[in-house]
């Protein structure tokens, strides 16, 4: 296959950045998108140019490191697929493909296709946990959990934290990410004691970090490589409303 790649090149956070075109020839269709960038980078290094910087690690769709906009769609055209699992057979000979970083106020660009997603960690630190000290849990079978609830919780827990939902949202909202965590824990009996504070803390942190609000666009669900449903956002909204009627947000405490 012959392809034209237009890649966003930005040397530093301060640099303005620009799209640069690269012609790729003889691309095998069982090459992954990241392997295509590997091939390009080998060529650039040999020519004395700087290779394209992009985050990646497991290359099997689970670590959540990789991801950028591929011709305007977070993680590219194939549904339920991370960038690393996108293979060139999804494209046609002669295609032009544009690769740009995930763009959002809360995700500043570090270099080329790499952005700083540490804001997602901060949302989890605000309350995305159950405060069970090591060694304190009862026998795993002491609390039966219906298969249905456990499965639903797992649906939400499947989030890989890649940030595609934020990049796809016209408002730059992290609602799907936050809702997935709140639902994963809130569906389980172990998550009940902290359920209200969790919703208050995580939503407050999300707003503080510069993520936008949700206006039910649904782009997030459409691009999510793990198929996390926007139904979970409704769940977050319910939890948040109930919690704000009954409690005010408190900081995380030791005991």
């Amino acid at each position: 296959m012959k392809l034209t790649l237009k890649i966003w090149r930005q040397e530093s956070p301060e640099d303005k950045g620009r799209l640069v075109s690269y012609e790729m020839d003889g691309v095998a269709e069982d090459t992954s998108f990241l392997e295509l960038l590997d091939i390009l980078n080998q060529r650039l290094i040999k020519k004395g140019e700087h290779p394209v910087t992009f985050d990646h690690d497991c290359r099997e769709g689970i670590c959540g490191s990789c991801g950028f906009m591929i011709s305007g769609i977070a993680h590219g055209p194939q549904k339920l697929t991370t960038t690393c699992q996108l293979f060139m057979r999804q494209f046609k000979d002669g295609d032009t493909i544009v690769a740009e970083p995930f763009r959002s106020r809360a995700f500043p660009v570090i270099k080329d296709l790499v952005v700083d997603r540490s804001a997602l960690d901060k949302i989890v630190q605000a309350g995305g946990f159950i405060s069970a000290r090591t060694g304190s849990g009862p026998d795993g079978n002491a609390i039966p959990i219906s298969k249905e609830k456990a499965d639903r919780s797992m649906d939400a827990a499947a989030c890989i934290g890649c940030g595609a939902c934020v990049a796809a949202c016209p408002n730059g909202s992290a609602m799907l990410f936050t809702a997935a965590k709140i639902s994963h824990l809130g569906l389980l009996p172990q998550g009940q004691p902290e359920r209200k504070q969790r919703a208050l803390r995580m939503v407050a942190k999300m707003q503080e970090l510069g993520f936008g609000a949700c206006s039910n666009h649904g782009e997030c669900e459409a691009v999510c490589p793990k198929g996390i449903s926007i139904d979970f956002i409704a769940r977050l909204n319910r939890d948040y409303m109930v919690a704000s009627a009954l409690e005010t947000v408190e900081p995380v405490k030791k005991v």
């Binding site: 849990g137 795993g140 959990i145 219906s146 994963h184 824990l185 172990q190």
Partner: peptide
């Protein structure tokens, strides 16, 4: 297993 369940790991049931 007990610790992971306490932390909210959604093991298969």
């Amino acid at each position: 297993i007990d610790q992971c369940v306490a932390l909210g790991v959604p093991f298969a049931r």
